[in-house]
Design a protein around this nucleic acid. Structure first.
Lengths: 339, 339
DNA sequence: CAACATTATGACACCGGTGTCAGAAAGTGG
DNA sequence: CCACTTTCTGACACCGGTGTCATAATGTTG
């Protein structure tokens, strides 16, 4: 029973009185081994607390049963705080992976540094999930490179024309429509938008477009002056809203491109003595945990992170298996709370 | 330039006109190789986009330059929502790992399932970080087993007598003292406590004890009836506070064992028409992101997650290197906001 | 019972690196 | 110029599994 170091399949073979090959087969429940031999081997393995060496196994089989998650952070956000929406995604991806029997390597990626997309090159992972808002434009050439190397990967986020990657994404356009329709139903048609109405962030732009188009379809034109740019932080939302107020711009509803922005916007409104939702109704996007805690509780467009995580993982696995996979669009969901 | 599959060190050797051994050495910058040869090899490797196969390398060297994170979730909490405090820890641990050149395998662990602590057994990770509040008692025998197997691991959370594991933890007792002193300074000495005053959760108990002892040192006895049990969720905090109110128990301050509990408590108070902080001052624990977003913004005892992540990783690495390491206690920090 | 299919097992090459060892090439000194 | 050290390189065993092939043992059939 005394062992130096960990037990190997040879040790098991020795104690079980069979060959090492048979041990390997028995432990993987190959139909080639006799039932009784299998039992015996399993028994000895359990007793010696033997575990298959994944490195050896992966090396031989040329796969890793591991996926890698690369989380791209907006370089402008604070180091210590990670966008809660992505954390929520991370949770659901982890769960989806473990359900599929895969391990997950997690890496945070500041856009400045060099990519760690070599996970797959170095055989650490069978595929990669890319997660992050932001200036994917920057990454376009990298994505191209991944494709050329035949690296398997899926991206979270809007499908961008001319970018040939496989994506899983929330229907941001549809989400914008939901938000707009909700405000129209409330007879709040004098709307501000805080986010990014340029093409810089494809997600934010799609949300904005769905929002704008829905108003337009009802014959209402959004006022360009009531649009303020912000990135997805509470602070940015606060300052963007502050500047609208400072410029004496009035509105009775506000659509924020993300919940963090919305939370910052509400703070700015409240500081200015504007009552939410009486004076201004606010709709956010994401449904991060904090959305339900703020008061008044935030009305928002929910992205189904649980489903998103599952789809990212299952699409990636399909891709790895060599199947053809389509980009997936997930339906958003309006969560009506107090604002 | 055409290749089937990934390039190996033999391919590099072929193109660079040296032996495979030399390639291996050159790429690891061994002093044994000639400067010019090294350059040449690096050049070819870069051109072929060669990356060392980690499986082969790990197999040979018997290490993985990977750490594993096991996140234990309270089985009673909702599947889709992960305690934001742990997510924040996860972020800082990831960063600390990558700074040290280690990869991180992440796994969520429902207490019911079987442990995935075999990461180290199966050579996937050099060491394990255990993260989670809760009934570690349940895990005691498992920890013992890990120790016997000589698995390297560190735990986040209170050091428990008789549990011989290495821990990194916030000074929960000191945090409780900070909270108490703050309330005493505000002349709010009629305090309620929401959390767990039993020994069930060592962290919560230490917070409670530091809190109680500080009052006692000033000659003030906490009223046992003003203690309500709750686990670390918003909902639990809400209901616990609700029941205090329902029982007609009055207080002018409230210490919650976690921010989520505090946020739930505030909601219960507000629903009952009790004004925070005028009628009841509230102090939480953790300083999760949402703490600054709720209104009124939550006063809370901060745990330094950045430092905690670094300490967990660096202590674990020391342990792996065979150094003797002491359990670490991190100083908490009172963040005074509006409540 | 010969002829053949079936089942269970062991021997062995192999995955792609790393570390050891031997030895060639160049340098040094008396 | 020979003996000896230093510098650099290649050959080769090895890490611990997996997959292929050969073969022994057993079962089946006319």
């Amino acid at each position: 029973m005394k062992h130096k170091g960990k037990a190997t399949s040879f040790d098991i073979a020795h104690y079980a009185g069979v060959s090492q090959s048979t041990v390997s087969r028995a432990l993987r429940n190959s139909p080639l081994v006799n039932e009784e031999t299998r039992r015996k081997v399993h028994e000895v393995a359990a007793k010696l607390n033997y575990k298959v060496d994944k490195n050896a196994s992966n090396l031989r089989t040329q796969q890793s049963s591991t996926l890698a998650l690369l989380l791209f952070e907006d370089p402008t956000t604070d180091e210590s705080q990670i966008n809660p929406f992505f954390l929520s995604m991370l949770g659901s991806i982890t769960r989806a992976c473990s359900k599929e029997g895969y391990d997950l390597l997690v890496s945070f990626q500041s856009s400045s540094q060099d990519w760690r997309a070599d996970y797959e090159d170095s055989h650490r992972a069978d595929g990669i999930i890319l997660l992050g808002y932001g200036d994917y434009l920057d990454y376009q050439s990298r994505l191209q490179q991944l494709l050329e190397q035949d690296t398997k990967f899926v991206c979270w986020g809007a499908k961008v024309d001319g970018r040939p990657d496989l994506t899983v994404s929330c229907d941001n356009y549809g989400g914008g429509q939901l938000a707009a329709q909700h405000l129209i139903d409330q007879k709040r048609t004098d709307c501000a938008f805080i986010g990014d109405a340029s093409h810089h962030s494809p997600e934010f732009f799609a949300r904005y477009k769905g929002f704008k188009d829905t108003f337009q379809a009802q014959g209402i034109q959004l006022n360009e002056r009531k649009i303020a740019n912000a990135i997805s932080t509470e602070d940015s939302g606060y300052h963007a809203t502050k500047s609208l107020i400072a410029n004496n711009i009035h509105f009775n509803a506000l659509f924020a491109a993300s919940d963090l922005i919305a939370i910052g916007a509400i703070r700015a409104l409240q500081e200015a003595g504007i009552v939410v939702p009486n004076d201004v109704r606010v709709v956010g996007f994401d449904n991060i945990p904090a959305a339900s805690y703020v008061s008044p509780a935030l009305t928002t467009v929910q992205q189904n992170t649980t489903l998103a995580g599952q789809m990212l993982v299952s699409n990636l696995l399909s891709l790895i298996r060599g199947e053809t996979v389509e980009s997936t669009l997930l339906p958003p969901n309006l969560i009506i709370r107090s604002t």
